[in-house]
Design a protein around this nucleic acid. Structure first.
Lengths: 141, 141
DNA sequence: CGGCATCCTACAAGATACTG
DNA sequence: CAGTATCTTGTAGGATGCCG
């Protein structure tokens, strides 16, 4: 019986990997803004502060849980500011911080490339036998 | 008893949501480049064509499966071109297509923001009680 | 050398119900 | 209205073994 189990070796390798790779700032940023609702919410907030329920209605499909979870994550990362106004019922507003606003151009760059070239990707995919999803609507958020 | 159950209404809402949301080009692009190895591989290929094993060695932590899977996905989407040279052993090269190259500036924008502001995110996270991962190494890819 | 198939695990995302 | 807690599940990612 070896001194280390397979699981232990895996865990160690994972640690080494994390140290070398997770530091990569791009990767970490990707993991943030790649979360399903992040980009959507940040662009919604670009127009100004919004209330919880307001955001929820403006983003079809988001669950109450994911909305709170995502917003709290963004708040924790300093991209969004959460302000509570006591009362019954309580009122909660979310707004972009300057840091969050500084991220908007990056999201815009992504959006711009997507608007210009996503059709090319669909075409390439179709050429490979996939039925592509005919994505032509420009919900450029 | 209503004609539609709650589950049915949810399923319908989901369908509507998918149609309205999955089309969003930004979201779809995010899902592509947000894949764990995509950005890393594309930037590695920015320098020129690379062999499979070459790429594998240059990206610590990537498994053979994920390397092939990711590259094939990129090939399917027209971002990468795969060329096989018969022989024993076979030789496989991967190179960016023009479409793939056009994506590099976007990745660069993400990387640039990350390099400039990821420390701010870490600071914000630390201020919220999280022990942050002290990401200071600049593996800017 | 490159690639495929199989099995497995971890985690993001969602459904649901309850609190204040 | 806003949020929390719990349970379930789809799927990305990874480990391993075999093939041309």
């Amino acid at each position: 019986m070896p001194t280390r189990t397979a699981a232990q070796r895996r865990a160690e390798a994972r640690t080494v990997f994390d140290a070398a790779f997770a530091d990569c700032p791009s990767r970490r940023l990707m993991e943030r803004i790649g979360e399903k609702w992040v980009a959507l919410l940040l662009t919604r907030l670009a127009d100004g502060p919004r209330r919880h329920g307001d955001l929820r209605r403006s983003v079809p499909g988001v669950s109450q849980k994911m909305l709170t979870q995502t917003l709290r994550g963004l708040e924790r990362d300093g991209l969004v500011r959460r302000s509570v106004t006591a009362g019954v019922p309580a009122r909660v507003d979310y707004a972009l911080t300057p840091l969050g606003e500084s991220l908007l151009p990056v999201l815009a760059a992504v959006s711009a490339w997507a608007d210009r070239h996503m059709a090319d990707i669909d075409a390439a995919r179709a050429a490979h036998g996939e039925p592509a999803r005919s994505g032509s609507a420009g919900a450029g958020g």
